[in-house]
């Protein structure tokens, strides 16, 4: 019952609404940061807001298939929009870090090379670039469905690196980054056929 209602409501939502909502949200956060609405340290606040939202969207994107398989909730129409939006938020997160936070090319480079949590964050970002570039029907046709699907498996290492990036930059033992890492590990584990079969039976 609930699942049917959810699916019925979802069918009425156009996928572009996700792009629009994310763009409005990102712009609104930037406006808040520039006008004192994000507290006394807006650079860090904005950086974290974009990064954490990107991670949430990556978790949601990974959850699309399990949600359909195990609960019957169909988000498949939104998956591309979720993924591309996550990429743009990672890009915004990177831009705030590079331009507003670190502020110099030499320091950006030094951080990427010397700081492991920055290195893996950059690696995750780099892995998402080919996915964002090929997230269109033309690319699916050009690459062929099999190759395209194979390429898009890169989202698993990217998600994992993103979560580890968050765990690694936290001071002390903190719960929130661990929850993201746990969710992503769980969502990846659900892909293993053996586990799927066991859960489906």
């Amino acid at each position: 019952m609930i699942v049917e209602t959810v699916n019925r409501v979802l069918r009425r939502v156009p996928p572009w609404a996700i792009y629009a909502a994310a763009a409005l949200w990102a712009a609104w956060m930037f406006y808040l940061g520039a006008t004192g609405g994000l507290g006394v340290e807006p650079i860090e606040a904005l950086e974290h807001a974009y990064g954490e939202r990107a991670l949430q969207l990556i978790v949601l994107g990974l959850a699309v298939t399990p949600l359909r398989r195990f609960l019957g909730i169909n988000l498949i129409r939104f998956r591309r929009a979720i993924g591309v939006t996550a990429f743009f938020l990672v890009l915004a997160h990177f831009a705030v870090w590079a331009v507003l936070d670190v502020q110099s090319v030499s320091r950006i480079w030094a951080d990427i090379v010397k700081r492991p949590y920055v290195t893996i964050g950059m690696a995750a970002f780099a892995l998402l670039i080919p996915l964002a570039v090929t997230s269109n029907n033309l690319s699916v046709r050009r690459l062929g469905a099999a190759a395209w699907r194979w390429l898009h498996m890169l989202v698993y290492p990217a998600a994992l690196l993103g979560a580890v990036h968050y765990v690694w930059l936290a001071k002390g033992f903190q719960l929130e980054p661990m929850i993201y890492l746990g969710l992503i590990l769980l969502l990846i584990a659900l892909r293993f056929p053996a586990l799927q079969a066991r859960l489906a039976s």
Binding site: L100, A110, R115
Partner: peptide, 22 residues
């Protein structure tokens, strides 16, 4: 002497807003 995970050479002074220079 850097922290193993980040540089200690510069700092961000709180209160400078979104466009504060380090």
């Amino acid at each position: 002497v850097d922290h193993p995970r980040w540089s200690q050479a510069t700092e961000r002074r709180i209160g400078g807003g979104l466009f504060a220079t380090r």
